[in-house]
Design a protein around this nucleic acid. Structure first.
Lengths: 187, 187
DNA sequence: CCGCCTCCTCTACAGCTGTAGTGGACTCTA
DNA sequence: TAGAGTCCACTACAGCTGTAGAGGAGGCGG
């Protein structure tokens, strides 16, 4: 499978961003991570901002591919199932897609200063919150919109803490926290 | 009040970090923000990492000065008082000390790659979580330690969302979210 | 008055960065 | 086969960065 050159570069960019931060996020560093000759990244994405936007786009694509299967469930969701789904999602953020998680935080902070990035990020964030809302609706929660937004933000906090903070909670703690949040939301 | 030169620089560094991110966090940029001649920052903090550590130290100092008055309350805390305290804290993070909040996230992410920074950050984080634990203990919550950790992380998520994410929650939503979290913790 | 010491500013410099442009290899069209 | 077009690797270059060090201003002890 020879992936598209741009996709290959965007994937490498996610890795670079997670490993080196915004400071080390340079055209040449991405070239290295992608195993391409110097100049490749700069050819496909002339400016650093274009590279960021492309990286974000690729992240959104991967996020959706990963989370897509989840809301395909039918029927009414109970607290236990909901907890399972959310806990599994968090675990994936922390392991399989840890790099993408870190890269997302980097880009979020950067979007504070870059309108072009901010617009894309909000778009993607809206899609994620919509999923949260959808899940809560399926479980019959009141005010699913507000609750969904809150829930997503709180979960993000737990993930951030695990990935860039103290990381003092084990899997059982995370599960308990999710269950409490969801129980509040369903009340 | 002529503050110590190092303190002046560290304060400027917080501003620079919040405004320009890790990438724009350079000796010369801090010189400019501090209104000092070029070379000053580089003289007091020879390496960039030393500057980061000093910045973090100053942030911890300011955080403590700000939060210090809070736990001075006596007596048993009720859910309402607790909610008031926490909501007020969040509001301060988002307004008065917004820059410091952003700088903290920048440094948290950076600490992922810098052991020297990580050590200091964990130290400060421990102090903050101790405050959370203390508050919950005063309110008679079971498992205040675990609950405190979770609470702090969740609050951080709400703050991050407001400051660098969608920011779709208004003050009433934040208050409601806090109340729910605290109610869960007290149960 | 002299010499010393501290605090600071200024300058030097090698290395890296973003971005643009040149030119070659390869592929398709006729 | 000739020509045009596309994709890509490489190079150029000005600007910025981290860090080190030289040197000067001003105060202090004698």
């Amino acid at each position: 499978m020879t992936t598209d050159r741009r996709t290959l570069i965007a994937d490498a960019a996610i890795t670079t961003l997670a490993a080196e931060g915004m400071r080390g996020f340079t055209h040449r560093a991405v070239d290295r991570d992608a195993g391409l000759p110097e100049g490749s990244t700069s050819y496909y994405f002339r400016t650093r901002e274009a590279l960021m936007v492309a990286t974000l786009g690729r992240m959104a694509e991967l996020d959706m591919a990963e989370a897509g299967p989840v809301p395909a469930l039918g029927g009414v969701l109970g607290l236990d199932e909901l907890t399972d789904i959310v806990t599994a999602l968090i675990q994936r953020f922390l392991t399989t897609s840890r790099a993408r998680t870190l890269a997302r935080y980097e880009l979020s902070l950067e979007s504070t200063r870059r309108p072009a990035l901010r617009a894309r990020l909000l778009e993607h964030g809206a899609a994620i919150r919509a999923m949260g809302e959808h899940l809560l609706t399926a479980a019959g929660a009141p005010e699913p919109r507000r609750r969904g937004h809150t829930l997503v933000a709180q979960i993000d906090g737990l993930v951030f803490d695990q990935v860039a903070g103290a990381g003092s909670l084990d899997e059982a703690d995370l599960r308990a926290a999710c269950r409490d949040m969801l129980a509040s939301a369903l009340r």
